[in-house]
Design a protein around this nucleic acid. Structure first.
Lengths: 339, 339
DNA sequence: TTTAAACACACAAACGTTTGCGCAATTTTA
DNA sequence: TAAAATTGCGCAAACGTTTGTGTGTTTAAA
């Protein structure tokens, strides 16, 4: 019953040959005779031999494991993203060690410790919406293990990241509304800690400038993505002296909450008040009240890109240890109209 | 720049003491003097020393890692589940190695190989909807690494699993409809490979028996969960000689597809035709057409239970290697009425 | 003062691999 | 036929830990 997992030592003993020969035989090393080679391979097969990755990792100082830290898989954005990551990671021979921060900084730090203990070769991380201090990232830098930031990127220089072009996405969203003759457009933006929040704002501003319209900063409110803060922001917009006919929200969840609140206030959503948001949830077409358009950010593709980037960093690392080069990928977003 | 990660050997050298002393000092071993102990710990702190889990795992023949294989994180059921798993796993000091099978058997097998290579201490798996052969699970059994099946469990004896009481959930669902005077109830069931499919059927039968009503097998159709097959099943039900006034579907996604199809056929969903389903997606209240009730399966809780079970197995393993005991947990489901 | 504990530490083996080097036996070349 | 090259394999070190056993001091008991 309690058979131990077979080792190459075991195989060596049974075949009366040395461990090194077994090792080489299993790797098809040219200096091993065909006869012993097949002998070894057959026995290995028979015993269900599977190399011990721990031993290999120790010896090679490489674990073929990448860490992935995301805020939470419950958001479809992130679950798609991790699928993209996993796909290319596995293709390249890496396994993913996963962790969810649940937007808790302490948890984020703790996860990073675990990842370090487990000697992940690299890390992909989408930071907490509250992360303001970045020392825990410095640790990784010092330890010389590459980090790719993903979607939610910190306000640091000298980092690798892949993100979505929120600015242009926002411009598309605003322009779409402007074409629809909307002149008073509210915005429920995200937490100020996120660069994506700033980008939304900038996009709004630039879109207005491009159309030679004046940007009214009193029309944009920040929220922390909680239902309550969304309600509050919505309320403020609804009672604004310039009553908006359309609102751009940080993402679809925010939009849903805002629409809920507006409906309660007897506002006829999608008639008197339009919403445009981000993420473009797959569920959108099935919703009762839905944003009229949503900025698609291609999370799966972003995940793939991030993983590709990391793998590349992992390979370049061997040659140039002193490189100060940093990869930055910004993928395009598109406005998807749901009519 | 390219500083190597510090090791206890490094610490030992700098302090001119032996490796073993450093190791024990870091573990607060009583046989180390207070002076050296603090000396070591301070230096370790200063160097950002983090023990190399690979070396530890090799030495202890234990990785403190558990594998989790799920069909796909895009379904909120599974993303909740993995959150539950991760929560207790982390609490107990384990890290999770994650993989998605995407309902592909080959991928499932491949993932299990990877997990074996990485010497996970245990495995939690929710099998593919197509998995019919079970040899790859035998490997794990032989290797003596515990497996906990989760939600989608194979039709095997001598396994550990946690699942949801689908039978009673179904009975609740059917009873609810019967109370609403529905007498012709259709069922769009899942793939026959899943036990959960059989349980739904049995639940239907038993609920009818309990109410002294005749069960009509011609009212239940199987589908493979794809949109097309759902449409087909719906079509068959709609053209059934006994036209159903309510349909129980395998899960909310199936319900959504079925409702979509029915709507296209000019059926007034939720008036002429009611739906009841399973999973109880968080999005449900926001949908345009939604099942009138859905069986909540508490995926997060199930995940927690599964992880707890695995951890327990991991601990018992030390003492009784020959135990043939198997844990089975069946958690209750509830019918949530959405009115 | 002698003897026995108690203390604080060092040595070395082991976990399962990979890999540079060495060495004998065989084959090829001169 | 002798020298050189090739073939096929073994030895041993190394990766970073943990831990059983040994050993030299100091302290306490007799």
């Amino acid at each position: 019953m309690t058979e131990k997992q077979p080792t190459i030592k075991e195989i060596a003993k049974r075949l009366n040959i040395s461990i090194s020969t077994v090792s080489r035989a299993l790797h098809n090393h040219p200096s091993i005779g065909l006869k012993t080679k097949t002998l070894v391979q057959q026995l290995a097969q028979k015993l269900d031999y599977e190399p011990n990755q721990m031993a290999i990792s120790l010896q090679q100082r490489k674990t073929f494991t990448i860490g992935v830290i995301l805020p939470g898989l419950s958001e479809s954005f992130f679950s798609s993203a991790i699928s993209g990551i996993e796909e290319v990671a596995n293709m390249k021979g890496y396994t993913v060690l996963m962790g969810q921060s649940h937007d808790d900084i302490e948890r984020e730090k703790q996860l990073m410790e675990t990842m370090k203990k487990h000697r992940v070769d690299g890390l992909i991380i989408s930071i907490t919406k509250n992360t303001k201090t970045y020392e825990h990232f410095e640790f990784f830098k010092k330890a010389n293990i590459p980090v790719v930031f993903f979607d939610r990127i910190p306000d640091m220089t000298d980092i690798n990241y892949v993100a979505c072009n929120i600015l242009s996405g926002t411009m598309k969203a605003i322009s779409y509304l402007l074409k629809g003759r909307h002149r008073v457009i509210g915005m429920i933006n995200g937490p100020k800690t996120l660069v994506a929040t700033a980008e939304r704002r900038d996009g709004y501003i630039q879109a207005m400038q491009k159309n030679r319209l004046k940007f009214d900063p009193s029309l944009v409110f920040n929220c922390d993505l909680s239902k309550e803060s969304v309600y509050e922001a919505t309320q403020k917009l609804l009672s604004h002296k310039r009553k908006p006919t359309a609102i751009v929200t940080f993402n679809d969840y925010v939009a849903m909450d805002a629409m809920h609140y507006a409906t309660q206030q007897k506002i006829c959503v999608n008639k008197d008040l339009l919403f445009v948001s981000y993420v473009n949830l797959p569920m959108l077409p099935h919703l009762k009240f839905r944003p009229i358009a949503s900025v698609e950010q291609y999370p799966f593709k972003q995940g793939q890109k991030a993983a590709q980037m990391l793998v590349e960093l992992l390979q370049n690392k061997i040659e140039n240890t002193e490189d100060q080069m940093h990869y930055k990928i910004i993928i395009d977003s598109d406005l998807v109209i749901h009519g």
